[in-house]
């Protein structure tokens, strides 16, 4: 697809922002996201090309405004639902549970 991911030769993306002494992961959620993707890829839940294509189908502005592991999160959520491994309602329930748990923690 002629998507936003196909970046070669585009102008206006700005300078290279190289970080000195960059850590492998920048936050705990990046570690978990990395492992969730690899664990479900390694057990055969989807193919690599399916995963890439699910990233490519992100809304273009969101693609540019989000980090690499956020791309992975969008792709994995979408693929697991499309492949029937997770029902859409299950994902929504998981969001609700996580939000409620965070609220309870905040109120405590």
């Amino acid at each position: 697809m002629n998507g936003i991911h196909d970046l070669g030769g585009m102008h206006g993306m700005g300078p290279i922002d190289a970080e000195t002494d960059e850590p492998i992961f920048h936050a705990e959620w990046e570690r978990r996201m990395f492992a969730l993707m690899l664990a479900t890829f390694a057990n055969g839940s989807f193919k690599g090309d399916e995963f890439r294509h699910a990233i490519e189908r992100m809304e273009p502005a969101e693609y540019l405004n989000t980090s690499y592991y956020e791309h992975w999160l969008h792709s994995l959520e979408r693929l697991l639902v499309e492949k029937g491994q997770v029902a859409p309602g299950e994902l929504e329930a998981a969001w609700k549970n996580a939000a409620n748990a965070a609220d309870a923690e905040g109120a405590a």
């Binding site: 959620w29 978990r32 996201m33 969730l36 479900t40 999160l73 994995l76 959520e77 697991l80 997770v86 299950e90 994902l91 998981a94 969001w95 549970n97 996580a98 939000a99 965070a102």
Partner: peptide, 10 residues
């Protein structure tokens, strides 16, 4: 939080 939700679900 969103990653945590996915991890819990899986």
């Amino acid at each position: 939080l969103r990653v945590k939700a996915l991890e819990s679900l899986l």
